[in-house]
Nucleic acid binder design. Structure first.
Lengths: 350, 350
DNA sequence: TTGAAAGCGCTAACAA
DNA sequence: TTGTTAGCGCTTTCAA
């Protein structure tokens, strides 16, 4: 057990291991990388030498020749304004949605020994940095989670020929793989549930209609209600925010005081709607049933707890990671997209 | 403007730029790295060549020779149990404390072009991976945010001679730089405030007394109260959790029904204490004044909003990043620690 | 099945 | 001030 004199300086290299094992660097490399055609006995010797020397491969040297870093960027991107005050939106972390995405990505990547680098791209400068980050080979590809629809980063990446995948379908068609949820299916779930509850005078509060998801949710809801014999469904457009949800609910109540069921395009607006209904003395769900969308943390914070449509965010994020790795392996492969089915989560509001 | 034939394959290298500029690789390298002693005219030529070729330095090649990656790991560590179900604690992201830490770190590092890699180290295996991550040269150092006191990772890193810094003083003395908050000062702030309000029968709910921060907060509070002429302050030990806070408050009320001021060692327990007081018909702050510690999101969620002690978490995190970079530059420098003063945030509970 | 040798793209002595 | 050159530690042909 006495061998492998400690290397004079720095940590041991392949050379040191090779010398300790009495083989060539190439052989040690083969053992480490699990290349077949290596004599089992030699494999064992090499393994012992590795343990004895405490060898750890140098990632830089490895990357230089393989042109891979084995790391990916997890980019939280948006259409933020140049010169924004806060360079790092704390709220991103507070957002349970992002937490679930990160959880799904890490859950898939960690067993593969890949750890995501966290990048924020709220400004043009930051977006340019992301592109550079990938071009410098600091990461092999990027998983993008956009907070806004008009995010220019996906196009930048595609134009740069950099491997990237997207959470949610891009507004403009782009040759990029993405995952998304079947918004229409989710909206149908909400419609079916409201009808099954016996709601007859149903309305909806949509998201901003320049956002794809909002369009799809509205269309899906209307289609499903039409199937149930309700050809016209009143709609007030919101902006996915608390304030806009409150305003929309007020207007809905003013224009359709007899409403007994509302599908709200996201939980945040639904939470506000619930408060408005409460102020107006309407009991939820008895007088008015409310269904939200997202199953965000807001859904549980609601009074009463919100019945809503849940994305399989973690699964979607894991699939996204898988798609990215596939694209890194085979850059010229056709883009793939995967649409996930959402599920109805019944709580007390409907 | 017609030069630099596009490189045959892959992206341009230093060689390509050098050829386009009619100089040597070394000169281009000097220009890129801002080394002085380069003829301004040549500098300009080189810059144009860089722009013309679209050159971006290869990080792997650079790291191989400089032995620096220019990236750091942000490690969320704990004393988690082996084989835990959830490999990635979503709640970490939900925790506003972590968000603030990350914000401070990113705020400091991003202008330097450094992006943190997010690592989780809840299990022994994960901790070994963190050590390997650094040993492989995938990051130059680690910023550790431990969720538990007995986290073994700091020692692993120190023993490995790997650059690392800690958020919060390690329980066992360790040659590692850290930042922390002056717990005793914070507790004194709380004491002074309660006394100034006119509280005469003051008690405290401490954290688990095997945790340093809990010890310091208790001692600091008692010392300050003694200065105000209250030599003995009743104390019930909690566990920094909601449940333990409620239990402690119940006990306090049973043993000292005439209490009119309580310092609770963290906001979560204070929140529970508030609920218990409410159940017992005690008005806060009129009957009983309550001061928490941390200024976590719980403080604002309380009814009434909690008066509490706030850490300058972002500043602390930024300083931590600075300490790490300093240590990476000068590995054999003595460890430094910086203690930050907390501040009293007066809301409605006291 | 194994070894020798040629780089990967860059920085940093050392010369000129 | 600039160029030449020698590696950094690894993977990967190509021969043996």
């Amino acid at each position: 057990m006495s061998e492998a004199p400690p290397p004079v300086s720095g940590s041991p290299t392949l050379e040191d291991v090779a010398r300790a094992a009495g083989v060539s660097r190439a052989t040690v490399s083969r053992v480490i990388n699990g290349v077949r055609n290596v004599n089992p006995a030699i494999q064992e010797t090499v393994r012992q030498a590795i343990a004895a020397t405490g060898y750890v491969p140098n990632q830089a040297a490895r990357s230089l020749v393989t042109r891979r870093t084995g790391s990916v960027a997890l980019v939280v991107s948006g259409a933020g304004v140049e010169g924004e005050e806060n360079p790092f939106p704390n709220q991103v972390f507070a957002d349970p949605f992002f937490g679930r995405v990160a959880g799904g990505v890490v859950g898939y990547l960690r067993p593969l020994g890949i750890h995501p680098v966290l990048l924020f791209a709220e400004t043009d400068a930051a977006r340019a940095e992301v592109v550079d980050y990938l071009r410098q080979g600091k990461a092999d590809g990027a998983i993008l989670v956009s907070t806004h629809g008009e995010d220019p980063l996906p196009k930048l990446l595609v134009d740069g020929g950099l491997p990237a995948v997207l959470f949610a379908r891009p507004p403009e068609p782009l040759p990029i793989s993405y995952v998304d949820v079947a918004h229409r299916t989710g909206a149908k779930l909400a419609a079916d549930h409201l009808v099954a509850r016996g709601c007859h005078r149903v309305a909806t509060i949509s998201g901003p209609l320049d956002v794809l998801a909002a369009q799809d949710r509205l269309a899906g809801f209307r289609d499903a209600m039409a199937m149930h014999g309700h050809p016209y469904i009143p709609c007030v457009e919101g902006a996915f925010t608390l304030d806009s949800g409150a305003a929309a609910m007020e207007r809905l109540l003013a224009e359709h005081p007899d409403v007994d069921g509302v599908f709200v395009a996201n939980d945040l607006m639904a939470q506000a709607a619930l408060q408005v209904l409460h102020r107006h003395g309407r009991l939820v769900p008895d007088d008015v049933a409310v269904v939200g969308f997202d199953d965000s943390s807001a859904a549980l914070a609601c009074k009463p707890p919100l019945t809503t449509i849940r994305h399989p965010v973690e699964d979607m994020a894991a699939e996204l990671a898988r798609l990215l790795l596939a694209q890194i392996e085979q850059p010229d492969q056709r883009v793939t997209s995967v649409i996930f089915d959402p599920a109805l989560v019944v709580r007390e509001s409907a």
